[in-house]
């Protein structure tokens, strides 16, 4: 059981909505179409690889027959999934303080949602409604979202540089090379294992290592 895969942490939050989540559906429909600016904070914060919100009506719970009972729920539930960088307990302040009202829209009027500021009640709400991940996998535990994006920029430029290098004079090459590293001066920082996410995660990892021997 671990929510941690290197630099990525999984979060699974299930919360009941009010009025069948109709307002939430509207917000999620409107947000990317008319309020792109609201999402710019999330892009600038750049702590998320991928995230999603899924509003699930009682009838949406799959029923595959073979005697499976039909769910009888009154609420529509909002299920939030994210893959983000850092420790949620450590970074909750960063999310709350930078996105504030934006976060409030994402859980708009969910039952019991206390708003994202003040932070302590928000933190307690998310923790109380979170489900630990049994198996979590990242294709790149050594990379944060920032790193994946920087890597793509470097690769795109290198394809060009490497494609033309052999046909250039040393002087021409120098100029193209200098342009490349100037453009990517902070895209080429070193990658390595994450700093520890928490002492508990570190202990789990150490125990797993011992088991392996």
């Amino acid at each position: 059981m671990s929510n941690v895969a290197g630099k990525a942490q999984a979060l699974n939050v299930w919360t009941p909505t009010r009025r069948k989540g109709i307002e939430n559906r509207i917000i999620f429909w409107v947000l990317p179409r008319f309020f792109k600016k609201k999402l710019r904070g999330l892009q600038t914060l750049s702590l998320i690889h991928y995230a999603r919100w899924v509003i699930i009506a009682p009838k949406d719970f799959p029923n595959l027959g073979e005697g499976q009972p039909t769910e009888e729920l009154r609420h529509h539930y909002e299920c939030f999934l994210s893959n983000f960088n850092g420790n949620w307990d450590q970074y909750i302040d960063s999310f709350s303080m930078s996105l504030g009202t934006g976060l409030d829209m994402l859980w708009f009027k969910n039952v019991g949602f206390p708003n994202s500021v003040p932070i302590e009640p928000f933190h307690a709400y998310i923790n109380a409604n979170s489900i630990p991940t049994d198996h979590y996998y990242s294709a790149y535990p050594l990379a944060a979202s920032n790193d994946v994006k920087a890597a793509q920029r470097v690769r795109d430029s290198l394809v060009t540089l490497a494609g033309s290098a052999s046909g250039m004079s040393p002087k021409q090459f120098r100029q193209a090379y200098d342009d490349t590293i100037r453009k990517h001066q902070d895209d080429i920082s070193r990658l390595d294992e994450s700093v520890i996410v928490s002492l508990a995660t570190e202990a789990v990892q150490n125990q797993a290592r011992q088991e392996a021997f």
Binding site: K37, R40, G41, Q43, T44, L45, D93, S94, M97, S98, L99, G100, T101
Partner: peptide, 19 residues
């Protein structure tokens, strides 16, 4: 930490003021 994206956050010090 807004990296030049003015108004990305509610205030430019959003990621700093708690630290």
């Amino acid at each position: 930490l807004e990296f030049g994206q003015d108004h990305a956050f509610s205030t430019p010090g959003a990621l700093v003021n708690r630290r």
